[in-house]
Design a protein around this nucleic acid. Sequence first.
DNA 1: CTTACGGCCTGGGTGC
DNA 2: TGCACCCAGGCCGTAA
Length: 286
Amino acid sequence: MPELPEVETVARGLRMVLPGRRIVDVRLGKTDFIDDPAALERELPGSRIAAVRRFGKFLLFELERPNGKEREFSLQVHLGMTGQMITCPPEARIAPHTHVFFGLDDGRELRYTDVRRFGRIRILANGTRESVLAEQGLDPLEASEDEFRRKISARRARIKALFLDQHVLRGIGNIYTDESLWRARIHPKRLGANLKAEEIHRLYRTVRRVLEEAIRLRGSSVSDYVDSNGEPGEFQLRHRVYMREGKKCYRCGIKIRRAIVAGRSSYFCPQCQPAPRGSTRVGASR
DNA sequence: CTTACGGCCTGGGTGC
DNA sequence: TGCACCCAGGCCGTAA
């Protein structure tokens, strides 16, 4: 499940090899996850990759048209759950579920593989790009603590829902939400507005530390995630709650629990992360 | 307007 | 060997 650290790792890997390269051809397999497949085939060949950026969970390939740079545009790629972007020689084995091949002018290929096809690919014209990106929330690594506090404390939604909402913070998903909340000792059902100043301070510091460490370890490989060289990350070895239902809390030894919060599996320690008042059902046993 | 929630997309893994 | 079910991120519709 590529979230900010995984997408950042992929972006950094691609940045080593793609800028300056020209796309010579585009070949497509299944296209139901591409906004306008014909536009890819029409617009990309001949264009030069000027830069590779990450914006939240998006990869942005900034492109220049062959005839002058007056009409720049971008290719936006969202990896969804199982998307992978890998560069390789054209004779490399084609992984199952590879649906897009970008031929490059150095003879190599950039490939998009996605088992579930929950990813999305589209071309962003320059005007559209700004408005699309403007809808996204704060980058947790760039935001100041004040900005972070304003985004969270004005809201009466659960902190879990706020963290998953890309319009609040961009780039965080289920894994890094749960890992951050456990480390900050905050229950996923706490409401943003009910967090004390000290808790928001702790959460701000924690989420940044978690994301930075995860980037350092090149992301979490839980199911399909690999970087642009096909290599897994290592942050899954540092997971403290994610997918650890029934196992002992690393801090207090109590069994980690799983509950659906904001529609997603949420792992937390019922002792280290006290539930807010009213969130536990009266009469519920165990 | 804000929030919560169910459904949908897809297919590998799991469990019966 | 089969197969129903679960689940993931984003998005959309609906209801309170």
